[in-house]
Design a binder for these strands. Structure first.
Lengths: 334, 334
DNA sequence: TTGTAAGCGTTATCAT
DNA sequence: ATGATAACGCTTACAA
């Protein structure tokens, strides 16, 4: 417990105390180059006594990479998003990198985001925002910063993606609707743009048609709880009621369920089948018991860091796309 | 659009291009020291052409502070927590700092957390974890890194806190229970330790007693949805049913409501008053319509950055505690 | 107002 | 295996 309140302990201090050169200190802490057990020991001891910690800023400056990973995310209010963020940051930490959180709420200027990323020499970037301005990842790619896009359509040279298997998911769902005898199912989509939503929309129509299920699509303003509420209103004012409702994501579905219950009473859920997509935490709550398709955020995070790490190793490999497996979670609503 | 794929543009490049010294470049970008309009202009132009960006790593190394703010948070699964994180990171960004996200999930070694913080010379730390190991903020304080504790009891020299006004909140709630004629209300707490929970527990018992309301306390394992479910089970197996239930936080309350409905049927909520604390997003969902006390996460975030900034300015001022105002949100359950 | 030069704390190269 | 030494890119006295 020394009292150097202001001046911080550097490798020089440790070197002096241990009676070695600062190169030796560097080598012991970076596991790089040769150090004898003996000196390593001495260095460690001196470091402990002095309370020395490697200065990552200096290290990063020298190595030209910071071990920081930019985590660009919009809509953290969405609980599914925050789950993604949580798992991503855990995964990033697990690989000895640090997540630099960059929320892109109410239209933060994308050039600002780019600046943060580039200013800090981030070693990589994960983008889970719904509609990331192309400029962001283009800029990163141009500066040869590894980028992983999560559930985004965009494709770009040297940029990897991980996409959840919407096709399989929709297939599972359509089968389920079909198996429970649904003939007219309405899909709840959203006006706001999003790859996942559009993609699911298209596939649902295709696969439903193949099974002889007729489809209608509703477009509330947003794809969140409020949007679901609005969709429920549209649903109940339609001339012929559908026998099933597929929501582009769980967040919408919860709103739809609540809206339906509000208008039609709690028992209405027995008459109409509802399904969502994502399997967010709340979907399992007993007020909802939503049947849905699960995409594991943990696996997603795992894929992201693997892709990132591999591209940090070898920046010039061609773009890869990892598909995230999904599975049907059968609950009460379908 | 130049093609220096690998070599990045430094202030020297800009200086050359603009025909000035690199000090001039530094001055223009750091708004520090004198620069004539004329040279500023030249520098800016050259920088634009070259696509120059200040290297924050180098700047930080030199200035001995990184403008990074450590965001230490546990339990990001809790939607209220993620809302806090979201607002905090926005507020941090707004002050031209960057949030370094440090989740402390399944007992990450606290020394690891400290390392991350100290390795990067963070300019400050916000801790919203429920039970942050004392060692973390002690270490930071010793290294004179500004720390703000959110809803924590601990107090330490040079460490600031922002605490939500539990007293006022509980008062509002007790009045509400009293006004609707409740005489026996059960409080749902939790075995897991948490300042907010304990604090509310104690105050509730005190204030309820003053009003002649008798209280019982339940201790499920955790203070989340599952804990609420468990509490509901205990509640329904008690000999005499209470006429009111106060949950230490909304997350518990949602579980309690769902548990109650499951056991007693949907209509049971007419018989029993329920209230929570925090006002998380889901509490307003129509399946719950939970009456609760709101603590604004935005204001909380605002307080945090203000305290942090002020302490960065003047590190030696005495500890301050900011109290977060709360208000009663009346919905259907009480 | 501008330029020069000395750091900031590491790491990597090159001798030894 | 170890020790000088030159980067890494920026800021900031101090001179001019």
């Amino acid at each position: 417990m020394n009292e150097h309140k202001t001046k911080s302990i550097t490798s020089v201090d440790v070197a002096k105390a241990a009676g070695v050169s600062r190169a030796a200190v560097s080598r012991t802490f970076s596991n790089n180059g040769y150090v004898s057990q003996e000196t390593k020991q001495k260095v460690m001891e001196a470091a402990n006594v002095l309370g020395y910690r490697v200065n990552h800023l200096a290290r990063s400056l020298n190595r030209q990479r910071s071990d920081l990973i930019g985590l660009v995310v919009a809509d953290m209010d969405n609980p599914f998003r925050s789950q993604q963020v949580s798992d991503l940051s855990e995964a990033i930490l697990a690989t000895n990198h640090r997540p630099l959180l960059i929320p892109t709420k109410k239209g933060r200027d994308s050039s600002q985001v780019i600046d943060m990323l580039l200013h800090y020499n981030v070693s990589g970037v994960v983008i889970t925002s719904d509609t990331p301005p192309e400029s962001i990842f283009k800029m990163c790619a141009d500066s040869s910063v590894p980028v992983v896009l999560v559930n985004k359509q965009d494709t770009h040279d040297k940029i990897d993606r991980v996409i959840c298997d919407n096709h399989k998911g929709i297939e599972l769902l359509v089968s389920a609707f079909s198996d429970s005898g649904c003939e007219r199912v309405t899909m709840v989509s959203s006006k706001k743009d999003s790859f996942s939503i559009r993609n699911r929309e298209q596939m649902f129509c295709e696969l439903a048609a193949e099974r002889g299920i007729s489809t209608t699509i509703l477009y509330p303003e947003t794809h969140c709880y409020q949007g679901g509420l609005a969709a429920a209103e549209m649903l109940t004012s339609e001339s012929v009621a559908p026998d099933g409702v597929f929501c582009a994501n769980d967040y919408l579905a919860l709103g739809v369920i609540d809206g339906l219950k509000e208008r039609l009473g709690n028992e209405c859920m027995a008459q109409i089948k509802v399904a969502g997509f994502d399997d967010m935490q709340q979907s399992s709550w007993s007020s909802y018991q939503l049947t849905t398709v699960k995409q594991s955020t943990e696996e997603m995070a795992q894929h992201c860091v693997e892709l990132l790490l591999s591209r940090i190793e070898d920046p010039d490999q061609t773009s890869r796309t990892r598909t995230l497996d999904v599975s049907l979670i059968k609950r009460k609503t379908l």
